[in-house]
């Protein structure tokens, strides 16, 4: 933790960086914009954290919440909804133990996201796992994928 912060601060000082370079580094080392890291760097460099947040929330490349190792995106378009994406989503929430307002599991292994439509309605319901689209998903298939990912870890 402290090593990362030192590296980020060194990079800032050496390369006449600015708030943005610090944020890029935080995203690189932590995978998201960690509030703790921002506040500590802000204190160290005497820059107010509000400036960091203003910039971090501006770009979609920066994530304000930690993201898991595996990103599971469940399509919530109408066709998928009718084909039972809600059920899959509910079951996944249970299985991964993430509540409605959070997205990432405690062990940082999975991030569960919803998306409006991935445009593959013909094979609904659709779930994208780490960017790869899987069609005609059901709970059993989903569980198999999850255990595969768990085993890979």
């Amino acid at each position: 933790m402290n090593e990362c912060l030192d590296k980020i601060i060194d990079n800032y000082l050496e390369n006449e960086g600015n708030v943005l370079t610090i944020l890029q580094d935080i995203e690189k080392y932590y995978g998201y914009i960690s509030e703790d890291a921002v506040c500590r760097i802000a204190r160290e460099l005497d820059i107010h954290p509000s400036r960091f947040f203003g910039i971090a929330s501006f770009y979609s490349q920066f994530h304000l919440k930690p993201r898991g190792k595996n990103i599971i995106t469940i399509c919530r378009g109408t066709p998928c909804h009718i084909k039972g994406s809600e059920k899959i989503l509910g079951r996944m929430r249970m299985e991964l133990d993430v509540s409605r307002d959070e997205e990432t599991t405690e062990d940082q292994l999975f991030t569960l996201e919803e998306v409006n439509c991935v445009g593959a309605c013909g094979i609904s319901p659709v779930v994208a796992i780490n960017g790869q689209v899987h069609g005609e998903m059901d709970i059993n298939k989903m569980m198999r994928e999850i255990s595969k990912l768990r085993a890979d870890n």
């Binding site: 600015n18 943005l20 203003g54 910039i55 501006f58």
Partner: peptide, 8 residues
């Protein structure tokens, strides 16, 4: 503004 380290 971005190079100055501010919001775009």
């Amino acid at each position: 503004k971005v190079i100055e380290g501010k919001r775009a």
